[in-house]
Each structure stands twice: as structure tokens, then as C-alpha cells.
Design a protein around this nucleic acid. Sequence first.
DNA 1: CATTATGCATACTTTAGGGTAAGTACTTGT
DNA 2: ACAAGTACTTACCCTAAAGTATGCATAATG
Lengths: 121, 121
Amino acid sequence: MTAIKESSTIQENKQYALEKCPVTYVMEKIGGYWKPIILYHLSNGSLRYSELKRAIPAVSEKMLIQHLKQLEADNLIIREAKPVVPPFVTYSLSSAGIGLMPVIQAMAEWAFIDKENGFSS
Amino acid sequence: MTAIKESSTIQENKQYALEKCPVTYVMEKIGGYWKPIILYHLSNGSLRYSELKRAIPAVSEKMLIQHLKQLEADNLIIREAKPVVPPFVTYSLSSAGIGLMPVIQAMAEWAFIDKENGFSS
DNA sequence: CATTATGCATACTTTAGGGTAAGTACTTGT
DNA sequence: ACAAGTACTTACCCTAAAGTATGCATAATG
């Protein structure tokens, strides 16, 4: 039994890691590249889908709605659609999403400091 | 010329996004799934490579050193190797890495609150 | 009457990330 | 003499994520 490589238990350990490490828990919810960026742009108030698209030109429409759906499913943002004929859909932060603002704020602040100090690779 | 789809400009817009959005800047540095987790485990002090491995059983050795190298290249952690024969290598936070602790701390705090409120999908 | 805008959905392909496994160099322990 | 520990490196493969490009319904606008 001692010959079993420890790496074969990685899968089972993932559940353990999720329960033990709070940062792992967070990464499961906002771990994607785009999610924190979306949340950052929503921090100044609700935005329409098309406004988000223009605010983040680097994201494709597919990625944008995909992550918006996931953020909604995780109760971090709220989607409101008015049944008018040119569709009018707005996204805003939920209370849990607002709770994430310290994280986003801390990121933004660190970015400015890091840039000032010129720590570039 | 009006027939060109706007999505074809996504690549060029990425550079723009990097300069404009601070959160994008941060995600380029600690955007990987494992990087914040590694930084979290180093927040209590320096650790040897093997200690990190045992602290994060869910990560494979390949991922661990890969991200450690990247974090070192980005000046977020410091690698110190003693030239002894059973290798003795420790990793610790740099000053820039310590500057990231508010982000990691905010993540950890939010995780606890979110779990208490039972916001699970 | 064709275009534009809105908020998506979907198919199709490519790429990058990550998993698994094995090897290396050197020494201490049994 | 052989396994085990330490800190990696390398090679191969595979899947999930992301890019690209369409389509759709409707209605105001030129």
C-alpha cells in the first residue's frame, strides 16, 4: 500500500480543500478571469448589458453572458429585464455582491500602488 | 468597411483594458486559480516547498512549482535556497506580496460571511 | 424595405491549463 | 544495497475554457 503515489489522491483532496481553505471557496465563485472585472464595473451602479459590453471591450459576448449567468446563479448580481421591445436589461450587485466590494477595492488599490512602484516583469 | 464585426477588434482592445482597468491588471498577476491560495498559505510566514505541498494537497507538483515560479517572476514571493544536500528551499512573501494581503484577507472574510448566510447554488 | 439596435443562444474550432507519471542528484536511514 | 525524502524537470495527453462566427425576434428609423 505504501507504493501508491500521493498524487492519485488529488481528486479526493479537492473536497477537503474547499471546506478548509476560505480562499479556495472564493476562487470557486469569482475565480474566472472576467468575473472580478465585471463586478468592478458594476460597483458604480447598475449597467445595461450593452453598457457592460462597451465598458469591457476585450470580452466576447459569449464570455460576457456566460459569466453574467454564473454570477446571477451564485447570487452575486441581479438581472432585471423590462418587457419592452428593444430589450432593456440591467445588471446590478446583490447584497452578497456588495459584500465582495472590499475584495475588489483592495485589488484596485494594490494595482495603483504596484504600478507606481514600477514592479513590472 | 461597415461589414466588419466588432468582435474582430477584441485582441487590440486587450492592451487598452490593461491600462484602463486596475482589476484587469491584478488578474494578470494573480488570476490563476492557485495563486491566491498559495499566497494565503504564505501569509502566516515562510514555508518550505514540501510544507506548501502538504498544506495544499489538491495541487499537483507541476502546478505548484509553475505558479511559484510565476509569483517569483512577478516579485510577489521570494525564494531562498540553502545549498545543503537535502535541498532546503523556503518561500515567503515579498513586500509587494504583503501588499496583497488586504485582498486575500478580504476574500477570507467574505467566504466566512457567505457560508454563514448559506448562499450556495 | 433594408438597416440598426438590443440581449441573447448556439455551433464550431482552437488553445491553454492542468493531470499523470516518470526521472534526476544526492544523502541519510535500515 | 535499497528505499525514502527533497526540490524540482520533462514529456505526453486530455479536457475545459475561450475565441470566432453566426442566427433570432422585434420594432423604430432612415
